[in-house]
């Protein structure tokens, strides 16, 4: 009798735990619909050096685009997707470099924070400080939470 009661208590706990998990994973999760199936014309190849494996798994840069703005300097847009089950907060910083690869000192190269809901994506962007900027470097660091 005591054994049967323990077993039913265990099953009940398992059901409650599963329901909580399902509710938690669904809370704030974003479903995204897009008509675009191919990379944008301005999409470019980029390489990433991974130091934080969890960041690579849950936060990923899906597409990198570079364009020249109306005013002259280059603009970069990076689509960042959150494939994890929770809200992700991260900070990012763009540094611009000239054609020789030298970093251009700029007041626009500052750390900015943003967050992405589970399953969602965000576009982080930066405009080069001068027309001389030819390329960029992006650093991303995630919050622990």
């Amino acid at each position: 009798m005591k054994h049967a009661r323990t077993a039913s208590l265990f099953v009940l706990s398992a059901i409650v735990a599963s329901a909580s998990l399902l509710a938690a994973s669904g809370c704030g999760t974003v479903n995204t619909t897009s008509t675009r199936t191919a990379p944008a014309d301005s999409a470019i190849d980029a390489k990433t050096r991974v130091n934080d494996l969890f960041q690579e798994i849950f936060l990923s840069a899906k597409e990198v685009r570079m364009n020249r703005t109306k005013g002259g300097p280059m603009e970069v847009q990076v689509d960042v997707e959150n494939n994890g089950f929770s809200y992700r907060t991260f900070a990012y910083r763009f540094d611009w470099v000239d054609a020789s690869g030298n970093v251009l000192q700029s007041q626009t190269s500052v750390w900015k924070s943003t967050n992405v809901p589970s399953g969602g994506s965000t576009v982080i962007r930066s405009v080069a400080p001068t027309d001389a900027a030819a390329d960029f470097r992006l650093q991303i660091r995630r919050a622990d939470t």
Partner: peptide
Amino acid sequence: FQDILKASSGMLESLGETGVLK
């Protein structure tokens, strides 16, 4: 202070991309 730096960066980027100063 981070907020001021972010605001300043956003303003400068916008000024650059519109090319209004030119």
